[in-house]
């Protein structure tokens, strides 16, 4: 979607707040939200649907509220949409009596168990598919000039641009459909773009931007 989240190349966001602070969390609630996002059970959800629900946050909230706060709002939205919690419960601030979705709530996990669980979260998204990849390394390609409606991972700044296939990564879950709950694998490539082909003001001809793009975002760029 052509939403507020698609920030690459946008102007006006000012200087970067460079803070040399190694703390992972700066408020207790940031850690709580991180933990909730790691251990909450969300049946049937996909990472791309969750990302899309974050993109759908109203622009003033997306830009104006803190980062982990936007995770929490995304969690609220995905749980409500899936029917696991209701807007009434959010407004009331408590669950309806006896409304537990699981007969057996999850047992507590220790730090050691969580470290093992983190290892279990090394999810792979690739799979073998029948069709051969359409493009080969070194080939010139042209990206689609239109984004897909809904969730997509071809940013606006790289649409309708010429690039070169830098690497091929096998077939990965296609995010546009994964955000609709459909698991379809499609060939994935790293495409290099000359910075001078992306940005009118760039003078340094050497600089490049690399994006990982699915085959249906691309066409042959020779012609």
């Amino acid at each position: 979607m052509d939403g507020i989240h698609d920030l690459g190349g946008k102007e006006g966001y000012g200087p970067i707040e460079v803070i040399k602070d190694g703390s992972p969390f700066h408020h207790d609630w940031e850690g709580r939200e991180w933990g909730i996002a790691q251990c909450a059970r969300t049946p049937g959800i996909t990472i791309d649907w969750w990302r899309h629900c974050r993109e759908l946050i109203m622009p003033q909230d997306y830009l104006g509220r803190p980062y982990f706060d936007s995770w929490a709002q995304t969690d609220f939205a995905t749980y409500i949409e899936a029917g696991l919690i209701s807007m009434e419960e959010v407004i009331e601030g408590k669950a309806k009596a006896g409304d537990s979705h699981y007969a057996n709530p999850p047992a507590p996990m220790s730090v050691q168990q969580v470290l093992q669980e983190d290892r279990n979260h090394a999810f792979r998204y690739d799979a073998k598919i029948e069709p051969e990849p359409a493009f080969s390394i070194g080939q010139k390609v042209l990206t689609s000039s239109h984004g897909n409606i809904g969730h997509t991972r071809l940013p606006q700044y790289a649409r309708g641009r010429h690039g070169v296939v830098h690497a091929y990564h096998g077939a990965h879950v296609f995010p546009d459909l994964s955000a609709q709950g459909k698991e379809v694998h499609q060939h994935l490539y790293s495409i290099s773009f000359a910075a001078t082909d992306l940005w009118p003001e760039v003078q340094n001809r050497k600089d490049k931007v690399y994006l990982d793009l699915w085959e249906s975002y691309l066409q042959d760029g020779q012609s």
Partner: peptide, 16 residues
């Protein structure tokens, strides 16, 4: 309340 998370497990993720 709904049995979807265990608060002790949230603690463990924060510590990890």
């Amino acid at each position: 309340d709904k049995g979807l998370v265990n608060p002790d497990t949230i603690d463990a993720w924060v510590e990890a």
